[in-house]
Design a protein around this nucleic acid. Structure first.
Lengths: 328, 328
DNA sequence: CGGGTCCATCACAGTTGCTTATAGCAGGTG
DNA sequence: CACCTGCTATAAGCAACTGTGATGGACCCG
């Protein structure tokens, strides 16, 4: 079970061709053939059917393991090298679309003001990629967002011993089209909305709601993608409901009423965050869609930061700044 | 990053000696020396300090990765072989101490009655070992128990793509010494007990309670081990409180009162389980300690079954029987 | 200071794993 | 039906690797 052979195996299975895999990996076709033969004789099983080249059932099992295995291997290497790397002034931040919100963007600005030499790259990616990018060393720090009960951790796919810290929690609102009968309510209960039409989005997968609340939540429209404006437009046009972080939507009530109706202050609305980039105090141009606070169950839009061993220096400083002092 | 070298590295680090590792792995000392040198030159970092032999910081990082990595490698191999194995009549069941409760022991008896040729071995082990034993093929099926909110999954350490199903949930009670002032209550709230003296046990780690309820739960006595009788004796002697599955303790109220006071029927007390081994309807000899139902938060003692790809045959049948029909 | 223990290094040998060359097989085509 | 083409399997040769055994230097201890 040499990782080398494993890599060859997944390449052959992906390309469904020995010769093509040979080309991609820079070997001769003969070498590929021998490697696959070695793997099969090691396990004592055929892993690929030839002509056409397709994984056997046993090969399918192996494929399921091979990906995470090779990822962890890269992660181990990256982590060890990171532990002994000199302080770097380049920092790559892997972030899901809603993770880098106003609060965190502000903290990032603060960190850059304190450390002008720091070059920051933000890599937008999906929720399932963040951990992989950080673990394999393609990003120093990851930010992932999701829906969770307050102070409950998100469940991100594991890919090694990464440090995971919650860095922000924002109130969640139900996004409604402007004329919706519920739009005037001071708050809503998720249980009352199990039969409503819902959008299936990557930001708020219905699977997650069903796990939290029970069956229901029929999918009215399935949106694959991560563009918030598109989702807002779909809501506005009445395609269905979805949950979004409160700062993205204007409240339907006069602002003076809101603080009293909300059960607790938002944990992220702490003092001491004088952002150099404005914190967008009013909602951006949602033009129509409006949000009603979700009262029960208590759910929040949570952002977690993940990173491996950071060398002391700007990267570690930034991590500390992003973390801010949530517990103090 | 050959797994072979990785295995050598962890052995050397564990034994803190090249020569001893050579003996254990069946190589010469020279080979070990060369393997470590190869690993270090591959990563470009010293991983071990010599004389005395100790991991460097980078080596420590690598050690953290190496264990899970090698486990997953074994898991992959075992899983592939399992997928293509002939139906086996030997079945090894890895179970934590409280996992094989009366309900599941009954289901196991039913399965064995239906399949007399089946040879069953039960491997007692800790919560953190179950997944590893199943993944690496040392057990076909695993049973792990823990404290969780109703129908919430336990969080077991990952070690590959295993199927995880909840198979039983039992009510939790607070175990109290007989003369305790709270012993007569119909139910208790965890929030009222944050300042009580608690036992730290493997069955109910206080860390878990703090995660569910918040700070508090001072540890009065730390019990390392998994013997329930010992824990009951400690409770009876007043060393502290703990949470235990209800069937282990006699109720403090007349049995006729209980069904009315409990919010819901126990999910595992389903009809259709005529156990050939008696289901122990009364509590075993708890002799003194008694249990008071835990009302809020709603917590249960949950048992999960985990397994990889099971070949059709007795093993798969048993898995189905253990699973019973929870959803029907 | 001498013996013992431990790791590093060197030289050598067996094995592994690659390349080149060629054989075998299935499918398309005139 | 014969032939060509594109694919994988096999054989032979060669280079690199990975082990063994022997040896050397550093350190500890009596």
């Amino acid at each position: 079970m040499d990782p080398h052979l494993l890599r060859t195996f997944v390449t052959v299975a992906r390309l469904r061709s020995f010769s093509a895999a040979a080309g991609e990996l820079g070997y001769t076709q003969s070498a590929i053939s021998q490697q696959i033969a070695a793997l099969e004789s090691d396990l004592g099983l055929p892993l690929l059917s030839r002509r056409p080249v397709e994984p056997t059932p046993a090969g399918e099992r192996l494929l399921e393991h091979a990906g995470p295995l090779l990822l962890r291997l890269r992660a181990a290497r990256a982590d060890v090298l990171r532990a002994a790397a000199p302080p770097a002034y380049r920092l790559r931040l892997a972030a899901t679309p809603l993770a880098l919100n106003a609060t965190l963007a502000g903290r990032l600005a603060r960190a850059r003001a304190a450390q002008p030499r720091l070059e920051v790259t933000v890599l937008g990616c999906g929720r399932e990629d963040v951990a992989a990018l950080v673990a394999s060393g393609e990003a120093e720090i990851g930010l992932a967002d999701g829906v969770a009960a307050p102070s409950d951790p998100l469940r991100l796919p594991e890919s090694g011993p990464l440090t995971v810290v919650g860095v922000a929690e924002e109130e969640l609102v139900v996004a409604l089209p402007p004329g919706h009968p519920l739009a005037g309510r001071p708050g809503l209960r998720l249980a009352d909305l199990v039969d409503a039409r819902w959008l299936q989005t990557t930001l708020c997968p219905l699977e997650r709601l069903r796990a939290l609340q029970g069956e229901g939540f029929p999918a009215a429209l399935d949106h694959r993608g991560d563009d918030v404006q598109t989702v807002l437009n779909l809501v506005r046009a009445g395609h269905g409901l979805t949950l979004l972080p409160a700062p993205l939507l204007p409240a339907t009530l006069p602002a003076t009423l809101l603080p009293a109706t909300l059960p607790t202050a938002l944990p992220t609305a702490l003092p001491g965050a004088p952002l150099s980039a404005g914190p967008l105090p009013a909602a951006p141009g949602a033009s129509g869609a409006c949000g009603v606070p979700l009262l029960t169950p208590r759910l929040v839009h949570r952002v977690e930061m993940l990173h491996g061993a950071l060398p002391p220096g700007p990267a570690a400083d930034l991590a500390r700044t992003l973390e801010a002092r949530e517990q103090a």
